[in-house]
């Protein structure tokens, strides 16, 4: 196992940040921690990268204990925090050289690992990190986290606030790194990115809601979901929220995802009800659940 987490709990004063968290990440796996702001993701990252000590429980990374062997872990992991933490007044090249030197290596020695990513920012190598765009900062931070050829890579919300195109490029890079044998633990609030991981843990308020492959997680969704659409979305949402038989009502792109509390639900009843609420152009059709549907059902 590349990462093992056993019954980890951590509190700050009265706030329970993590409550009895356990999971394992296999070698070479791309494992996602999926949850919103405040779920406890960053606290867990800080414990696993030896920057914070848990109140209870134990954990190992690359077979080293996070408390007893913390120095060895630091040599064997790469960590990209959610907040940009490189030196703003050093250039791209200086930052990279700095981190290589700290770990007793050189850019040349592990260039192979970062080449794909570094070539995209190399033409700006004399520019100070503080003057880079968000996307370039992110690529530089990833290079710096990789330059000592870590066994395990920790990425804390690398794509938050990043546009969909850059997000897609970033995930393509992660897939290529995974093929080079690096174990990756990545956190994200974007539920669509969950589908790109081998396995995921859904996390909220310091607790793990579920752990499985993305495919299995959506398969366990307990209800039938219907796509509903009508002439006026706002009125539709209000009408569905007022409907006595609703189980859940969530806007979902061009549709509203609706589940019913009855076992023998007939969509025709819902159409009649919506028509009685003066809605027109009503469409109802079955649809497949997504990770986000599952998350909301579990978090309800």
């Amino acid at each position: 196992m590349s990462i093992t987490v056993n019954h980890i709990s951590k509190s700050y004063k009265n706030v329970k940040a993590l409550e009895d968290i356990s999971f394992q990440v296999k070698e070479g796996e791309l494992f996602g921690l999926i949850g919103p702001d405040g779920a406890g993701k960053t606290t867990l990252f800080r414990i696993l990268t030896t920057l914070l000590i848990a109140n209870e429980g134990s954990a190992t990374v690359a077979d080293f204990d996070v408390v007893a062997d913390y120095k060895k872990i630091r040599n064997n992991v790469g960590y990209m925090p959610g907040k940009f933490s490189l030196y703003q007044d050093l250039t791209i090249e200086e930052n990279l050289n700095f981190f290589a030197t700290i770990f007793g290596t050189t850019i040349e020695e592990n260039y192979d690992l970062i080449k794909d990513i570094y070539v995209q920012i190399e033409c700006f190598k004399d520019r100070r990190a503080g003057k880079l765009s968000g996307g370039m900062k992110q690529k530089l931070a990833l290079c710096c986290a990789l330059i000592h050829k870590p066994k395990v890579l920790f990425l804390d919300e690398p794509t938050t606030g990043v546009d969909p195109v850059s997000r897609k490029e970033f995930w393509d890079m992660l897939k290529r790194l995974q093929q080079k044998g690096i174990t990756i633990l990545v956190s994200t609030p974007y539920m669509d990115e969950a589908a790109l991981c081998d396995r995921i843990a859904l996390i909220q308020n310091g607790k793990i809601l579920q752990i499985d492959t993305p495919q299995a997680i959506v398969k366990h969704y307990p209800k039938k979901i219907y796509n509903v659409r009508a002439s006026n979305t706002y009125q539709l949402i209000n009408a569905l929220n007022d409907y006595e038989y609703n189980h859940s009502v969530y806007p979902f792109g061009e549709f509203v995802h609706y589940t019913d509390s009855r076992k023998d639900f007939n969509p025709k009843d819902l159409i009649d009800y919506l028509e009685s609420k003066d809605l027109s152009h009503i469409e109802i059709g079955k649809t497949e659940p997504t990770i986000e549907d599952t998350f909301m059902e579990l978090a309800k």
Partner: peptide
């Protein structure tokens, strides 16, 4: 950005209401 999926939808219901 970063808001949980349920609250994100409640937020959009507020937007619809304002509009």
């Amino acid at each position: 950005g970063g808001v949980d999926p349920i609250t994100r939808r409640q937020f959009w219901e507020m937007i619809y209401k304002a509009a």
